[in-house]
């Protein structure tokens, strides 16, 4: 008789995909936009990205040690958070503020709530909200691209320009698509963001439900408010938010139906803030608000389980 080691429960086969792979694929998908950001805003952008990513990694490792959780920095989720956070910061934010953001994202928003999988809010967006409340001036000072040096002149983002009826020409739609406009680090180039999004969709890391519902809702409502629909879709952080923020697994609904509801909700709130709110942009708060509703959306959209339908009813339906 031979003793066999390695008892393990069924199933004994496993799809090859791991959480680490998922996260690193998201990182990969963010790289084109990251490169674009360095192109548009110079080395300064690289510095901010480096600072947020490193603070996120360090904070994660430290808090996992403090909370006696297994240290799983390698799974890449902190890198995703760090990159996403840098993408929603203005290009000339003092570096220590960026670091504070990274710390808030990981420690306050994620680890305090129980770590990966238990946080309610999207860490990058919640950290941005914290920074915006703490440093309203620095967080809203934007610069047009290709300005290096200390004498750079700040310039409004297109959405601010529209909201506050500022004089001066708006960037053309083509410029906005390519990313030649003022804005946060990673939000400006729609083209490069879509490149990454295509990768996520193709690899089935995300599904189309949230982005499509989100963008379609914004398009329809913008039309109702008599806005330039294309402009509204390309402006602000909408593309970044719809494909990379709202689709965050942990803070979005589990089911496809839930995802549609979530996307529509994000769209409505975004447009309402843009049109009626005090801020020019509403993507960040819209997603954070919908994050809070996720447990409820989940409960309302669980699939109808097999066998829950009575056979009498069922058979009449399919006869």
């Amino acid at each position: 008789m031979e003793k066999l080691p390695l008892l393990s429960p069924a199933p004994h086969l496993h799809s090859s995909e791991t959480t680490g792979q998922v996260m690193w694929t998201v990182v990969l998908a963010l790289l084109p936009a990251a490169a674009g950001s360095i192109f548009f805003f110079g080395l300064r952008a690289l510095k901010i990205m480096a600072v947020t990513v490193v603070t996120c990694l360090v904070t994660e490792a430290a808090s996992q040690a403090v909370f006696h959780r297994p240290v799983r920095v390698k799974d890449g989720s902190a890198v995703v958070t760090g990159l996403l956070l840098s993408f929603v910061l203005p290009p000339r934010l003092p570096l220590w503020m960026a670091a504070l953001g990274g710390f808030s994202a990981i420690f306050l928003v994620k680890e305090l709530f129980g770590g990966l999988g238990y946080n309610i809010f999207n860490p990058a967006l919640a950290a941005r909200a914290i920074l915006l409340a703490s440093f309203p001036v620095e967080m809203t000072r934007f610069y047009p691209p290709f300005q290096t040096g200390v004498d750079a002149v700040s310039g409004a983002t297109p959405l601010t320009a529209v909201k506050e009826h500022l004089a001066g020409p708006l960037p053309s739609l083509k410029e906005m698509f390519l990313g030649v406009r003022a804005g946060c680090l990673g939000e400006t180039s729609v083209l490069l963001l879509l490149l990454g999004a295509a990768l996520l969709l193709a690899r089935r890391i995300i599904t189309w439900h949230i982005p499509l519902a989100y963008l379609a809702t914004v398009a329809v409502l913008s039309a109702i408010f008599r806005q330039n629909v294309a402009f509204q879709l390309l402006a602000g952080g909408l593309i970044l938010g719809a494909f990379f923020m709202a689709t965050d697994y942990v803070t979005s609904p589990l089911t496809s139906r839930g995802k549609l509801i979530f996307g529509i909700g994000c769209g409505i709130i975004t447009v309402l803030i843009r049109m009626q709110g005090g801020y020019p942009e509403g993507v960040c708060y819209a997603i954070l608000f919908m994050n809070m509703l996720v447990p409820m959306i989940d409960r309302l959209t669980y699939p109808v389980r097999y066998g829950a339908v009575l056979p009498e009813k069922k058979s009449s339906g399919q006869a």
Partner: peptide, 25 residues
């Protein structure tokens, strides 16, 4: 093969809901 991981976090990716033939969560 690497065993299961009791302690890993559920990242709420939703894949299990898609896969469950009984349509549970």
């Amino acid at each position: 093969r690497e065993g299961f991981s009791e302690e890993a976090p559920c990242i709420r990716c939703g894949r299990c809901l898609q896969a469950c033939p009984m349509r549970l969560a």
